[in-house]
């Protein structure tokens, strides 16, 4: 039943959309769930009972109803419409001018959907986090104590239920240049984590033997790990971001 409606809605969506070359290039902000694709069969109020986008916000974004689906390309699990996203993704528009028209249009929507998640990178490793999460790092963080407040400032994704703001794909490392990861502008969000404490694993004993020797050496190891609690995950609104960029 559900599959049928989804398929039908997908087909309808495809018929509504203009041909590929007329569509804008791949949106930075994409929908992250199927809910928007079923928008033409189910009333919007039923789809998103928990949250609503204020009317003035809707007017501010000025999305005409017909083209609403175009910049909000359906989320990644859409094998039925692969041709929707042309391969020529724009390269790093963030660096030159952070306030692209799409950011202007879609950041208020992302900002208004309250619980946000982020993919935050610590020492190059990604962690998918949201407010209130407890994160046990795989290492002991040096020079921090319980109670310290860390500011996490490298993110590649900021998402809510329906929208995701993605950073460009990382550039693969070559012989001439090392790998380059493109992060989102750190003025877009604020993420804070509190150092909760240090956790330790149970002692591990590894028996080391040499051939033709009765002696067995036992190597002990007991690692310690820093535990963080994500205390704040906040996405800035458009006005605040404009102020931060302008200043």
């Amino acid at each position: 039943m559900l599959a049928q409606t989804v398929r039908r809605s997908l087909l309808e969506a495809r018929s509504i959309l203009p041909p590929t070359f007329l569509l804008p290039f791949r949106a930075r902000i994409t929908t992250a769930s199927h809910t928007l694709e079923t928008a033409n069969t189910v009333p919007e109020s039923l789809l998103r009972p928990g949250q609503h986008i204020a009317e003035d916000l809707k007017e501010k974004t000025q999305l005409p109803k017909d083209t609403k689906n175009a910049p909000l390309t359906p989320s990644t699990p859409s094998p039925a419409v692969p041709s929707q996203q042309p391969p020529n993704t724009p390269q790093t528009t963030e660096q030159s001018s952070p306030l692209t028209p799409q950011i202007r249009k879609l950041l208020p929507l992302l900002h208004s959907q309250a619980p946000h998640y982020m993919t935050l990178h610590i020492h190059g490793h990604p962690y998918l986090l949201t407010a209130g999460d407890t994160l046990r790092l795989p290492f002991l963080m040096p020079r921090v104590q319980p109670g310290d407040i860390l500011r996490l400032n490298r993110a590649t994704h900021i998402g809510s239920r329906d929208f995701t703001l993605k950073a460009p794909e990382p550039a693969k490392g070559t012989r001439d240049a090392p790998k380059k990861v493109f992060y989102l502008d750190e003025r877009l969000f604020e993420c804070r984590a509190t150092v909760v404490g240090v956790e330790s694993e149970p002692m591990r004993v590894k028996e080391k033997t040499k051939r033709r020797m009765r002696h067995v050496r036992r190597v002990k190891s007991k690692h310690r790990f820093t535990v963080l609690k994500i205390s704040e995950v906040r996405v800035k609104g458009l006005e605040e971001y404009e102020r931060a960029v302008g200043a």
Binding site: L120, H121, I122, H123, G124, R143, V144, Q145, P146, G147, D148, I149, L150, R151, L152, N153, R154, P178, K179, V181, Y183, R192, A193, V195
Partner: peptide, 19 residues
């Protein structure tokens, strides 16, 4: 150093109360 990734964090406030 060129290969080293960004730490991705900085200490914003020391936990003075707990100290």
């Amino acid at each position: 150093e060129r290969r080293r990734p960004d730490p991705g964090y900085f200490v914003e406030k020391r936990g003075g109360a707990l100290k």
